[in-house]
């Protein structure tokens, strides 16, 4: 590349007719009406509520169906449980009833002569 140094100097100048005016004023976006925003929010909320309630009702219906199916196996479980219960050793084999706890009266009758006690013991033992 060669540069021709013999060319004449040319000054940069604005285009003919001048530049466009600069947009230096305040730039604001196109305004949406408040009523429109309000209506849009209401629409979104109502759609969401509708979907939510629909899903909730469907879930409840599903739960009910599940419970209906579960009730069908309850008699089976009940019957097996009854049989297992009757087969187990649930009955009380002792045939006893509750009694008040006996008081430990050892030494309560120390004034009684020991010979009497021995006599009574012997007498008591003799019967058996």
């Amino acid at each position: 590349m060669t540069i021709d140094y013999r060319q004449r100097w040319v000054q940069d100048l604005p285009p003919p007719g001048g530049y466009e005016p600069l947009p230096f004023g305040r730039q604001t976006p196109k305004m949406v009406s408040g009523y429109k925003i309000f209506a849009g929010v209401g629409l979104v909320i109502s759609i969401g509520t509708y979907l939510f309630i629909n899903q909730r009702l469907q879930d409840l219906r599903n739960e009910e169906e599940e419970r209906r199916r579960l009730t069908k196996i309850l008699p089976i479980i009940q019957a097996e449980n009854d049989i297992m219960f009757l087969g187990s050793a649930h009955e009380n084999v002792y045939h006893t009833r509750w009694m008040p706890p006996s008081i430990d009266r050892c030494g309560a009758f120390k004034i009684i002569p020991q010979s009497w006690v021995a006599e009574k013991k012997q007498h008591h033992g003799g019967h058996h």
Partner: peptide
């Protein structure tokens, strides 16, 4: 209901 339990089981 033992009879019925046995039959169900």
């Amino acid at each position: 209901c033992l009879k019925y339990s046995v039959s169900v089981a």
